[in-house]
């Protein structure tokens, strides 16, 4: 495919790979949690520098579910309009240890599962699937299997310098976890862990078809197990879930499809922003592209609190 090398940024809102790199360097410089990544070497794109294939920021906190924000009721929606005050307070109460709220939101999660819209979106699948695991029996079998691998002789070597450690997180959130077999793609075991802090990795790649940046999100639960697609949709604005946010193959990573904000509208939105700035007598440098880009994709993932320190003024 033809890779552009002439700037069309001002006319059409698209980027050349060089401009993407320049805008990426600017982002990394001003928002220090972002960094360049090389990706899987077998997937290196020749039109980008080897060590600047895409941008990544890791472990971004996501305290609240988007679905909760939107479905809780009028009261919350009103609060939401005045910034995110209401829900931030809720979160702090949880930290103080008031389990009452936990219970309340737990119920809410279950209510949502019964919600008609949710069932339609899930097709034939049971709505409760998200909060229960149907693999429990198989896992138990595997646990028994694993016992036969244990080697006794190796413990005979006495090593007085090994500390016995137990992770604070494990004790707090899932004491039974110690006994379970690692299952990298396991869904959450209990409804209440849905409420714990999820984290996200955000990636920005260069989409060579649309000639724009493209945002990817990968979510993890409190144990840092990857979230299922359904769980991730809870953190996407419900107007955008499954329409703007789709599952596709990441250009630089191995593995299954990942959630991505579809780039088909990015150039248009950017063009409008450029025009608005120019009508106001200003001019928008192409190096600011990603800073602005992150601002407008935030409407799709409003509860993911990524580092975003720069302000951008339209006028």
């Amino acid at each position: 495919m033809h890779i552009p090398n002439e700037s069309k940024f001002r006319e059409t809102g698209v980027l050349t790979p060089e401009e993407f790199v320049a805008a990426g360097d600017h982002l990394v410089h001003h928002c220090p949690t972002w960094q360049w990544a090389a990706g899987d070497e077998s997937k290196t794109k020749t039109y980008l520098p080897k060590d600047k294939q895409f941008l990544i920021t890791r472990n971004v906190a996501c305290y609240r579910r988007c679905k909760q924000m939107e479905y809780v009721g009028e009261e919350t929606l009103v609060e939401e309009e005045s910034g995110d005050g209401g829900w931030v307070e809720t979160h702090q109460l949880n930290d103080d240890g008031t389990s009452q709220l936990d219970d309340k939101i737990c119920e809410l999660t279950l209510d949502e599962s019964k919600d008609e819209m949710f069932t339609i979106e899930n097709g034939k699948r049971s709505p409760l699937r998200v909060v229960t695991t149907d693999d429990d029996n198989e896992d138990d079998d595997e646990a028994i299997d694993m016992d036969t691998f244990e080697e006794s002789g190796m413990l005979e070597l006495v090593d007085p310098a090994v500390a016995t450690t137990t992770r604070k997180q494990d004790i707090e959130t899932n004491p039974s976890n110690l006994a379970s077999v690692v299952n990298a793609s396991e869904t959450t075991n209990s409804a209440d862990s849905v409420l714990r802090t999820r984290t996200y990795d955000l990636h920005i790649t260069y989409d060579k078809y649309y000639q724009t940046p493209r945002l990817w999100v990968v979510g993890y639960d409190e144990q840092r197990k990857p979230l299922t697609v359904e769980q991730m949709y809870e953190d996407v604005s419900q107007d955008h879930a499954k329409k703007t946010v789709t599952m596709e193959s990441h250009p630089h990573l191995p593995g299954p499809n990942m959630a991505s904000v579809h780039p088909c509208r990015h150039a248009d939105i950017m063009k409008k922003i450029i025009q608005t700035v120019e009508e106001g007598g200003g001019q928008l440098g192409v190096h600011l592209y990603l800073i602005i880009f992150l601002k407008f994709v935030q409407t799709v993932i409003p509860t993911i609190e990524y580092d975003f320190t720069q302000n951008f003024n339209m006028s």
């Binding site: 595997e142 694993m146 110690l178 077999v181 690692v182």
Partner: peptide, 16 residues
């Protein structure tokens, strides 16, 4: 391993 014994672990990747 997770049980504190000398043994391997297993990752089940069926879902992905």
């Amino acid at each position: 391993n997770r049980n504190g014994k000398m043994g391997p672990r297993m990752a089940n990747m069926r879902d992905s």
